[in-house]
């Protein structure tokens, strides 16, 4: 099978501080990957490299065979770890904005999700709560028919009931050939939807395995394994 994302020997340093060291990743189409690691392990930096917001110090990244550039950006739907929308815009404005920007944007999908989460698209962003803004942002990202979804902490500020809805939405909406890379701390919530997990620690990959293999070999959940591997003394 051809690879959807290849990260080859990537190192990223900010001045003298090495944030990622010799990272290799090979993501296949049609799978959901969890990018897990404690604070400061390099998750967001790796995601920014994949999305072309930062350039690697050494090493290469390919998306569906192309280097990072306009083509890779058209294939990836990216949810950053920050809210970046203008507060004066309404959700309706944003939907128009997104469909102007991205050919693969599916308006109907977006309106469906907004309805199911009881979000009024006529309201301006400044009157929405933090959690609701996060939902809007995630809905926009998941409404693209992208090849790769890269979600940086997608459900952090969202209540548990909506979290379930969002996870189910992710499961039922992504194309069979698309893949998802999710970074999160909320492992228990998300474990059931992951195929594989990648553990990052101090900028290095310490583990990369299928969730069911971890459960079979270790007799514990990924969440328990995470707590063990990254125990703080």
């Amino acid at each position: 099978m051809s690879e959807l994302l290849t990260v080859n020997a990537v190192t990223k340093a900010f001045g003298r501080k090495v944030v990622l060291e010799n990272i290799h990743l090979h993501l296949e189409p049609g799978r959901i990957y969890g990018l897990l690691g404690p604070n400061g392990s390099g998750k967001t930096t790796l995601i920014k490299l994949i999305n072309g917001l930062l350039a690697p110090t050494t090493g290469e990244i390919y998306v569906d065979g192309s280097g990072i550039g306009p083509r890779s950006k058209s294939l990836i739907s990216y949810l950053p770890d920050k809210l970046y929308f203008a507060e004066w815009m309404t959700t309706n404005n944003l939907i128009d904005y997104y469909s102007d920007f991205y050919e693969d944007f599916d308006k109907e999908r977006a309106y469906n999700m907004l309805m199911n989460l009881n979000i009024n698209p006529d309201e301006k962003l400044k009157v929405l709560s933090k959690g609701t803004k996060e939902k809007v942002q995630l809905i926009l990202v998941m409404s693209r028919r992208a090849k790769l979804y890269v979600l940086d902490e997608p459900i952090g500020g969202v209540d548990p009931a909506s979290r379930d809805y969002i996870l189910d939405t992710i499961l039922s909406n992504y194309d069979e050939n698309a893949s998802i890379l999710i970074s999160t701390h909320l492992i228990t919530d998300i474990e059931r939807i992951l195929d594989e997990v990648i553990f990052l620690q101090n900028g290095r990959t310490v583990l990369s395995a299928a969730v069911d293999d971890i459960r079979a070999n270790e007799g514990k959940s990924v969440d328990e394994l995470f707590r063990e591997v990254f125990r703080c003394y």
Binding site: I32, D168, L171, S172, E176, R192, I193, L194, D195, D212
Partner: peptide, 17 residues
């Protein structure tokens, strides 16, 4: 597979397996 996976709230690949 997709329907069952959605119902169980699991990844379709896992249901397939």
């Amino acid at each position: 597979v997709r329907v069952l996976a959605a119902e169980a709230g699991v990844n379709p690949n896992t249901m397939q397996k």
